[in-house]
């Protein structure tokens, strides 16, 4: 019972935080399910986008945060453009995913690692560096040979840069990353204070 009330309290805080961060009006959703019907990834989700929205409406945000669905969402926004109530479901999923990660709920590790490597490369070089992305992904996920066979054709077709880009204004990139992190931390502090 105590466990249940703790979970409820967590959910209540998370619900308030989600609202402040996404500004999505989840209450508008009348559960028609059009979002799930048109979702190209729905077949692979543990709960449907409609159910994610229902959990949010009920204040059971902790449950939504633990779902795989928010990680598998491809961000195609088909749900959002088709929603008869104009609810931006895709943006809600994206915000939930950021919050899930902050809380350590990462059920789709490979997806998370892939994006972490991508972010790291952007931070270091200001641009994407494909060989770094592929090698980094394969090493961290343990799928060592994934897409290995594409490397040679890409080189032969002259479609890969062997060396990463070296930004001329390296400080610009550094400032964007550092300031974005500070702004995010400020927001988080405000959410906690507001409780």
């Amino acid at each position: 019972m105590e466990e249940f009330s703790q979970s409820q309290a967590k959910s209540k805080n998370a619900a308030e935080e989600l609202q402040k961060r996404s500004h999505v009006e989840a209450a508008k959703c009348y559960q028609c399910g059009k979002c799930s019907g048109g979702c190209p990834v729905a077949d692979y989700m543990d709960i449907m986008p409609r159910q994610v929205m229902r959990l949010v409406q009920l204040g059971l945000v902790e449950e939504a945060l633990k779902s795989k669905a928010i990680w598998l969402c491809a961000g195609c926004s088909t749900c959002s453009v088709r929603c008869p109530k104009g609810v931006d479901i895709a943006h809600e999923m994206e915000t939930l995913r950021i919050m899930a990660k902050e809380r350590g709920y990462i059920p789709e590790k490979d997806i998370d690692k892939f994006h972490n490597i991508y972010i790291g490369l952007m931070k270091g070089f200001g641009r994407m560096y494909e060989p770094g992305l592929i090698v980094g992904r394969n090493v961290t996920t343990g799928h060592l040979l994934k897409d290995f066979s594409y490397g040679i054709p890409y080189l032969v077709k002259r479609k890969l840069n062997l060396l990463p880009y070296r930004p001329k204004q390296k400080d610009d990139i550094k400032r964007i990353f550092e300031t974005a992190e500070q702004l995010m931390q400020q927001d988080l502090a405000e959410f906690r204070e507001g409780r």
């Binding site: 961000g75 950021i98 995010m184």
Partner: peptide, 10 residues
Amino acid sequence: SSAHVTNPYL
């Protein structure tokens, strides 16, 4: 597709 699922400011 990585920045907006990581930090909206980024």
